[in-house]
């Protein structure tokens, strides 16, 4: 019972804040709403026993990435009068139609799936499920190859960013 209440709170929170991200006029407000939405998502992760995911969600997304967003927004220094009121063009009309269609396709597929299948029951999970230990264990055993490749990915990202951003050649 308590679980359902928490779920409703987090789910509605995530939806509401996400909508607010889109509606808010000031980009800074959008960013703050996004942080709130991330927190609600983290709550849902906790309820799914994915505690490590929840912590990472807050540390990386709500923390590091959002700070970056806000820095960029501050550097761009957009004044209120520069923000134009959104106008509905024919492109946006098509995009809204397509988006709605895709939304219903995905929603119906997920509904069909969740209605029919036997999902993992909670009581089959071990106590350590979703904690750092099994994830770390997986990362250096089964998933060691993608884990090491991610190191190269980060290096490429850094070099690429420096190449694109540095002042002079």
């Amino acid at each position: 019972m308590a679980e359902t209440i928490f779920f409703i709170v987090f789910a509605l929170g995530a939806l509401g804040f996400s909508a607010a991200v889109l509606i808010a006029k000031n980009p800074i407000n959008s960013a703050v709403m996004l942080v709130c939405s991330f927190f609600c998502l983290a709550g849902i992760y906790v309820m799914l026993s994915a505690t490590f995911m929840a912590v990472i969600q807050i540390l990386v997304y709500a923390g590091a990435i959002m700070v970056l967003f806000i820095f960029v927004l501050m550097l761009l220094n957009i004044r209120d009068d520069e923000i134009e009121a959104p106008r509905l063009s024919i492109h946006q009309g098509i995009a809204i139609l397509a988006g709605t269609g895709i939304f219903f396709t995905i929603a119906l597929s997920i509904a069909a799936w969740s209605g029919s299948s036997s999902r993992v029951a909670h009581d089959t999970m071990s106590d350590t499920f979703g904690t750092v230990e099994p994830i770390g264990d997986q990362l250096i055993t089964s998933y060691v190859l993608p884990f090491e490749m991610a190191a190269i990915l980060l290096l490429v990202g850094i070099v690429g960013a420096v190449v694109v951003a540095k002042k002079r050649f």
Partner: peptide, 20 residues
Amino acid sequence: VSVAAVIGNTGAGAVPLAIL
């Protein structure tokens, strides 16, 4: 052992999701 429990996911309902 428990992998079998996870695999139990797939069924008729999973088809649209997989295609998507």
